[in-house]
Every structure is written in C-alpha cells, then in structure tokens.
Design a binder for these strands. Structure first.
Length: 963
RNA sequence: GCCCGAGUGGCGGAAUGGCAGACGCGACGGACUCAAAAUCCGUUGUCCGCAAGGGCGUGUGGGUUCGACUCCCACCUCGGGCACCA
C-alpha cells in the first residue's frame, strides 16, 4: 500500500473486473476463437466435411436467426436480443453433446438499401457493403459463436446465382392437382404430346401452332407472366405484392398510395399450395398466434359457387351459405366487375358510371375516413334465383370486393348483416328463411316473429329453415346447417347451377419489381415475346454495373404513370445474341428484378453448404441438417431445429419461404417438407420516446427529467413507449454499452431482463446490476490484487455442495427451455452464497464458470484459464447434477390451518404421511393456532406441505378478539 | 366487429394447483473515504404493533378445491394481428 504517495492509485485493485479489463478479455478471446476456428462446424460431406469431427460433436442441431437487413444506421441494442438468445442456446447445446450449426448472413438486396443509396448518391453495392462491414464489426464484439465460413449475403454473386437457379426450377415446374405436388414442366409437355392430358381447347397437340403450344404450357408454370391487376405504387416507381400493401391502400415501405392497375408482371402460383400451407402448419412447433395469422392470411373458406342466369349470361357468385339461397332477393356486383357494362340498362348508365368513378376514386383517399354506410346503385337488370325462379335485381356496391371470390354475391338480407343493412337502406325484400330461436328475440328485446321488419339485425346461425322449398328441393325439414348446405349443393350440382368449392383470400404472389437493387431474372424473351429460362450454364445473370441506378419515381398520386425499370436503360445489356438450342438468335433480357423476399426464401439452405459451386446444397448435407427427425415424432417435417426472429415476419417471409421450400421438396431437391420445424418469436426491446407539443419525436438522450416531468431544451415533452429505433429517436447503440461495461455485461443484461419472448423496456440504469454480478463472479475466482486464481482445492461443505447441484439441475432445465432470465437468477444466488465462504472451493468454481460460459463466454474463458485449463471451454461438457445432492435428509413442511401458513415442522425426508401429520399437530405454534379446535381433516402432500382443516372457527375467532 | 396475447411491489420480473414477490434496479441505513464516485454489508409489498405477532394483498365480480397468481365463467383495461372476405 502506498497511500502516502498517491492514495488514488491504489483505490481500485489492479485486477478488478473493470470495463477496461472486460474489453481486454473480450478482444483477446474474440481473436483467439477466430485464430483457432473454434466455432467452425463440420459437415458430413462436401467441402466443409469432417466425418470424424461430425461424429465426435454429437447430435446435430441447426439454430437460425432471421438474418438482418444491414441498414445505414447500424445496430441498436434492440437488434441483437434474438442473436444473443440463440448464441446462448447454441453454446449451451455445444456443451451438452450437440453438433451445432449457427451462422449469420445478410439480407442485403431490396428497397431500403436502394433508397439509402439514392439518398446518399452512392452506389447501393458500396453503401450496402459498408453497412455490412459495420454490422459485422458490431456483431463480432458481442462474441457470437457463428461459423464465419458460412456467412452469406444475398447480394453475393455466388449466392444469387442459386436464387436465379431456384427461380428457374419454379418456372420450369407446374402443379399437378391430382398428385397435389409440383412436377417438372417437361412431364406436362410429355403428357400433352402423348395425349395423356387433353389440351385446354381440346385440339390435338400436333395441330396447335408452336406459339399456342408454348402458351398452353406457360399457363401451368408456377412462375408466370400475367397481365392482371397489380398494385402500382408511383411514389416508389414499382409494383408491390399484396402483402406489402397496408389496409388503407398504401405501400408499407414509404407509405405512398397504391393503385390497382392491369400490368404485365411476374407472378408465382403460391395459391396452388394454399391447402398444404394451411394443413402443414399442424406439423410445426410454432405459436398458435403465428399459425392463426398464416391461416387467416390464406383465408380458406368452403362454400359453393352458384350460377345465376341473366341477360348477360351466367353470373357466378361465391357463398359460404348455399343453404340460404332461398332467401337471396338481390345480387350485388363489385363496381369493377366485368359484366357491369353489359348489364347496365341505358336508363341507369349515367348513375352507374358516376358510382363506378366515385368508387374508383375512393381508393385514392384514406379508407379510414370512409363511413360504413352502405352505398350502391341498381343496374336495371335482373338475374334468376335458381331455387325460387324469381327475378332478382342486380345492384353494384363497393362493399363487394373484386379481389375476393368472384366479385359478385347473392344477397341474403335476412342472414347477412351487410346485406341486411343494404336491403334496409334501399327498401329491398327481406324474407325470413330461418326461424331464429326464442333466445335471439329475447336478446334483442322483441317479440318472436318472422316479419323481418321488426328485426334490428340479420340472424346468422343455425336454426330451423322456413320458406325453403320448391318442387324438387325441401330444406324445411332439415335439422342442421350442415345438412342444408350438403342438400343444396347436391341439388345445384345435379341441375348444373353450381358446385361446392373452396375459396381463398390468398392471391398469387407478384414477384417482379421495377428497381435496380435486386436479383435479375434469368429470363430472356424471343422476338415473339415468349419467355425462356436461361440454361444453368448461363447463370449467373449478373446485375449490370451502372451509375444510373435510381428508379424513375413519380408523383405519388400519378396513377396513370408507367413503371420504368432501371435495367431498361442498359440496352447493351438488354439485347443479347444467344443459342438456346434453336440456333443463334436475338433475345431481350427481362429488365425486372426480384423482390427482397427472394433471397430470404432459402438462405438457411445455403448456410449448410455455402461454397458449393455444383449445387445450391449437397443433398447429403441437407439431409443431415434438415432431414425429418422421425425419431422425435413420426410426422416430423424436418427443417431448422430452432428459428428465432420477430413476429413482423409472421406472414410475408415465413409464407414465401415455406412455399419455395415445398416446391423444391416436390421437385426432389430437399428431404424436408418444411423449412422451420420450430419457430420462436423473441420480444422487442422497447424504449421511451418523447414527443414535443407539435407531436414530433425529439432525441431521447437529450430529454431531462425534473420532478416527474420531462423536458427537451427547456420545453415540456410527453413520454410514450415504443419499439426502439431510428424513427422514434430512442435508439441506444451497443457501442455505448461496450464502452461503459463490455459485451458480456450487455449480453447478460439482455438475457436477464425478462423472458425471451416478451417485449421489455430498455433501462440503461439497470445494466449495472449485471456488471456488479460479473465483478462478484470474477472476485469469487480471481484475486483482484494479483490477478491469479483464488480458488482452493479443499472440498466444499455439504451445504454449498447441495446448493451447487441444485443450481446445476435448474440451470440445465432453464437453459434448455430458453428461460435464461431464471437461469441467471440461480447463478447469482449460487455466487452470492459462495461469496460468503472464506475461500472458493474448486469443485464449485469450475462448474460455476462452465454454467456461466454460454451467457458470458469471454469472462468465462478467462476464468477457465485462471483455473489452470489450456483450451477453450466451448466443448467442455456442461455440468451434470449429482442426484445424491438433490435430496435432503430432512424436509421442512409449511403447515397451514385452513389454507394459511401458521407454522413449519421439519421431519425426515422418508417420513410417511402419518408421521408428518403427527409432527404438524404437535407443533407448538400450530397448537396455539388451533386453540383447542378439533381438526376435521388433515391433508398431507408428501414433500410439499400440510393443511389442517378446522370447521369450527370459534377458536380462531377467539384469538383474533383476544388480540 | 372478429382472432391472438397479457394484467403480480416504486420499476423489470419470479412462482403454472401447495410458503406470492426469487433475481436485478431504485430507495433507505451502514462500512471504507477529508469528501465524492466506485465497491462492500444490511433493510425494503402494505397496514396495525415497542416487540412477539397479526390483518390485507396478484385488474374486477363469481365459481371449483382442503388449498387458486395458477383452473372454470362473466366483465374491465392494455398490447398485437385482421378487418365490408360474402
């Protein structure tokens, strides 16, 4: 001690776990792991193969994070929550005998990267690569145990070459509805040629022109060019998928208006997979919430198509209640329905035209302002109800949507609330066709009556039919809705007036974008405009270099502008001379690019075999990592063992990726039916955000708190909680935490603040608690003055040993279940107990370091070294509790009287119920509590507790009054 | 409107039929220091009580049970998703 010369110099011991020491430990171990390839995971075959190592490491386990989009603002502490969680789990599993595959790539094509590049005037490749470098640096400092050799980016030519290859697989496939699977298009062609399959118009194949033949085949492709209504977004200068349009008709990126326009675009026939995408959800270990969102998005409903005769020919409607057809008294078409022009009588032409214009314009304004008041106009025409033979008026109204069903409905006003409101407003007939139960009338406070003019609302449900018969069909005697539907469907089919069908909300996936920063299509068009997939040896089609990468955008409300693809400007690139088997010819390249979702549809597969130049993945490698685990469950679908990511991808990414995976499975390229066997949604990190009086967010870091009020530059601001991020100006960078505490503290805090699937508010001031714990843990094992090990080789006392083994037991269970917050609490308890010992016994120190290792790997490695070990602890077996120390010789039983704990007794562990009961009744405090009252019943739960039931509570009341 | 999920101290949270509030933050008290920071030790749901001890307490109201934060019914509040889907 030299306090006489410079007291301050000696105040902090030289080897205390300070942030300086933490940073030193962390950078040294990160370098060490890299140098030693610690986290390199062996494959069973291919370039990364090491059969011996694969066997040694144990059972395979594939852990996956939703890979990040490298944005220009870098990481904030909310991003790595899931990454840390999977890292802790992966490290734990490595120590319990698993060959863990864990890698991290980048989803780097797409609109935001391009927008960022446009804003900064730099080429998107440059900005994207810079952003990736920033992400890599920030992620590396977290000490994540990723196999760096497997880190792929969707923008790598070696990656998107295979994205293009997969596109061609999909293009060259069709869906066989009999076999319910995709098959190569060559098999369809063969079936047409042989006559096994009849052509669309019944002509013999040989009599068709080449162009007609091509069209017949193209009509079946799973990727196809279609001239159909799409979502045109002038503000972005591109079309977007249905899934990218918000409920109020705007783009989810940029919030620009979106217009429905017919355009020639690439589509993917995802609708053919609708049933399998719903049904196979059963096989997945996903939350019910996500499954419900997917089911809801696909929107399967069974019903019937019914054909109504009219002057313009048959009009087909879709209904889920064909049994209510007797009550259909009018028909409503969507304003955009193709038969509206034909059906409109001259006298109604002006009214109808005006309504259609207004309905079209309505899409441009914010739909939230729309009132729910029904509007509509009569066309002047009538259709025939096939059951009643009655002529029913045909109306148009915007409550009928062109995009669902057939864009036309039969209106049953007594049984559908919307139709009821419409009929009421326009004075149309509302005959009752069901007798609602008495309770329904009572619930609405009206007399039971079939006079619907007394009804306040439509009746929807199962009830006896009335007025539901004609000469050949009678529903009136049927008991249930199911019977009514089946009977009506049979009648419709027999008469050729309809058929049972299943309808879906899901639409085909609009797959092309008129932007620069994406995968080019591996497609060229011949002089007749027919698309041809480029053969494998012509892949990749590299994204051409240009400095004119900005898309042509338009005024956001310029509905009738037309998209201009940036690639269209590169005519030298567009026009090519190729030999595709028919001799050298002129072709034009497709100038669209794929949507951002393309690259994320299959990245997990490329992690498996990132350097394979012959195939997108080696089948043996895919089988090893993704093959169905029928040892776990007979119907296991295969796929990633644990997929962790945010709930925001519940529909888009997860639906698209499942679709591609199933196509590749059908075509024989994969052994797994589903890509992600288990999905875990981590919560968000929330942070306080502050708004000034203009409702504008202000920089959270500059907000001051005074007496419970918040101020920004002296002005009062209001606080709210939101997802951490740039837009709310409340992002906390991990760099700040590295500087203040180090990465281990950040990791530990993020895991300790709550369950992984719950959102939680970020509180920088709480972080210090985990920092203090690491200091105490360090001090338990290392001498703060010398930096040497402080553990002793004398055995631990019995009590400490028991605590250790109980901790091991719980920590193992909790880590397996991804409950890291409770595992951490147990480790803190153990360490706090050990702190009170005169010295730390090695038999406690070593397991404690190993248990902490998945959570705080850097400091754990350092302590492991201090304990005399020379290699990384990454593959050291995780401690196993000795059952011997999990039981005590005696147990303390809480003793309740009428459910309230009044005392406790200690008895031998093996004591039987009678002994425990006797001990409880003999306890002084219990005797006092009973105050002479006779127990009517004594419940002894072995190992748990005793409850004494006293019916006569006079004794107890006496005690209370005595006090 | 429909479909999910959640309501526990000042705060984050723990306990999934058996001792409510583990662990952490904050707060309060103490040690060290000239002092402060850092660190360490102790107390901390709430009310009554000098204390021993007791009352109350998991959004609200019922129910099941020897026993309910936990299970059931109804309601309230908050968060998320879908939304004129025929």
């Amino acid at each position: 001690m030299s306090e006489h010369t410079d007291p301050k110099a000696t105040e902090i011991p030289p080897f205390r776990y300070s942030v300086v020491l933490a940073q030193d430990i962390e950078s040294r171990w990160q370098d060490w792991w890299d140098e030693h390839g610690t986290f390199e995971t062996p494959n069973p075959a291919g370039p990364l193969a090491d059969a011996q190592k694969t066997a040694e490491r144990g059972e395979k386990l594939f852990i996956l994070d939703m890979f990040p989009y490298p944005s220009g603002s870098g990481l904030h502490v909310g991003h790595p929550l899931g990454f840390i969680g999977t890292d802790v789990f992966g490290r734990f599993k490595r120590m319990t005998g698993h060959n863990v595959l864990h890698a991290m790539g980048f989803d780097a094509f797409g609109l935001p990267a391009e927008q960022y590049a446009v804003e900064t005037g730099q080429h998107p490749r440059l900005t994207t690569e810079q952003n990736i470098a920033t992400y890599r640096r920030q992620l590396r400092r977290l000490g994540l145990a990723h196999d760096q050799r497997r880190s792929v980016s969707t923008i790598d030519v070696g990656y998107y070459r295979w994205t293009q290859w997969i596109f061609n697989q999909i293009f060259n496939a069709w869906y066989d509805t009999d076999l319910q699977k995709a098959r190569p298009i060559t098999e369809l062609l063969a079936a047409f040629e042989s006559g096994a399959r009849s052509t669309p118009d019944g002509r013999a194949w040989g009599e068709m022109t080449t162009s007609d033949q091509a069209a017949a085949v193209d009509d079946h492709r799973l990727a196809y060019v279609s001239d159909a209504p799409v979502n045109w977004c002038p503000g972005l200068g591109t079309v977007v998928a249905n899934e990218e349009v918000t409920a109020d008709g705007r783009s989810d990126r940029g919030n620009f208006p979106v217009f429905t326009r017919n355009m020639r675009q690439w589509m993917m026939r995802i609708t053919t997979y609708a049933d399998r995408l719903i049904d196979d959800l059963e096989l997945l270990d996903w939350t019910d919430a996500i499954k419900a969102m997917q089911r809801n998005w696909i929107g399967r409903s069974s019903g019937a198509r019914v054909h109504f005769a009219s002057a313009a020919g048959d009009i087909t409607v879709f209904t889920t209640r064909p049994d209510t057809l007797f009550g259909a008294t009018f028909m409503v078409l969507a304003p955009e329905h193709s038969l509206v022009d034909t059906l409109t009588e001259p006298g109604q032409a002006d009214t109808v035209a005006a309504y259609r214009t207004a309905a079209g314009a309505k899409k441009e304004i914010d739909r939230r302002d729309e009132t729910r008041e029904k509007t509509g106009v009569f066309t002047g025409s009538y259709a025939t109800n096939p059951l009643t033979g009655n002529l029913i008026p045909i109306w148009i109204a915007d409550y009928v949507l062109m995009g669902y069903g057939t864009g036309a409905i039969m209106a049953v006003p007594c049984g559908d609330q919307r139709d009821f409101e419409f009929a009421t407003k326009f004075g149309l007939d509302i005959p009752a066709i069901q007798r609602p139960p008495q309770s329904w009338f009572e619930g609405h406070g009206i007399e039971s009556s079939l006079d619907t003019s007394t009804w306040p609302v439509a009746f929807i449900g199962d009830a006896p039919y009335v007025n539901s018969s004609n000469d050949t069909l009678d529903l009136n005697a049927l008991a249930t809705k199911a019977d009514g539907i089946a009977t009506t469907n049979a009648w419709l089919e027999a008469k050729g007036r309809g058929e049972a069908t299943i309808n879906y909300k899901l639409r085909d996936w609009l797959f092309s974008r008129q932007r620069y920063w994406g995968e080019p299509f591996p497609i060229v068009y011949d002089i007749e405009g027919n698309p041809h997939a480029l053969p494998d040896h012509m892949l990749p089609v590299e994204l051409p270099e240009t400095d004119r990468f900005s898309p042509r955008t338009f005024e956001s409300d310029d509905e009738f502008s037309n998209p201009e693809s940036p690639l269209d400007r590169l005519q030298d690139w567009v026009n090519v001379t190729l030999d595709l088997g028919d001799g050298v010819q002129q072709y034009r390249r497709d100038t669209n690019v794929m949507p951002q979702w393309a690259g994320s549809c299959w990245y997990e597969l490329r992690y498996l075999d990132p350097t394979n130049a012959e195939a997108f993945v080696d089948p043996a490698v895919e089988q090893y990592w993704m093959g169905p685990r029928t040892d776990l469950r007979p119907d296991h679908p295969g796929g990633v063992d644990l997929y962790v990511g945010g709930v925001e991808h519940a529909v888009l990414h997860l639906l698209y990726a499942r679709f591609w995976h199933k196509v590749l499975f059908d075509l024989g390229h994969l052994s797994s039916v589903e890509p992600y066997a288990r999905l875990f949604n981590q919560g968000y990190i929330l942070a306080a955000a502050f708004k000034d009086e203009r409702e504008i967010y202000v920089d959270s870091l500059a907000v001051e708190k005074r007496q419970g009020e918040y101020f920004y530059e002296g002005e009062p601001v209001t606080r709210e909680w939101g997802k951490m991020g740039k837009s709310l100006k409340n992002a906390v960078s991990p760099d700040e935490l590295y500087d203040q505490y180090g990465a281990d503290t950040l990791r530990l805090y993020e895991m300790a603040m709550g369950p992984l699937d719950a959102s939680r508010p970020w509180e920088t001031r709480d972080v210090v608690g985990m920092y203090r714990f690491l200091q105490r843990l360090w001090r338990t094992i290392a001498d703060e003055t010398t930096g040497e090990s402080a553990v002793v080789d004398t055995p631990a006392d019995e009590q400490t040993r028991k605590l250790l083994h109980r901790t091991i037991d719980v920590v193992r269970t909790e880590m397996n279940a991804l409950r890291f917050n409770t595992a951490i609490a147990k480790l803190i308890e153990l360490n706090n107990a050990v702190t009170k010992l005169p010295a730390t016994p090695r038999e406690v120190a070593e397991p404690m370091v190993l248990m902490a290792a998945p959570l705080v790997p850097h400091v754990a490695e350092e302590l492991w070294r201090k304990l005399g070990h020379t290699d990384t602890l990454t593959y050291v077996p995780f401690p196993v509790a000795d059952a011997m120390y999990l039981v005590d010789e005696t147990i303390e039983y809480p003793v309740q009287v009428n459910g309230k704990v009044r005392g406790r007794v200690t008895v031998a562990t093996e004591a039987d119920a009678a002994t425990v009961e006797a001990a409880a009744l003999a306890d002084d405090r219990i005797v006092a509590s009973l105050n002479g009252a006779k127990p009517t019943k004594v419940i002894v739960i072995p190992g748990r507790m005793v409850n004494i039931v006293v019916e006569d509570t006079i004794g107890l009341t006496d005690i209370v009054t005595a006090i």
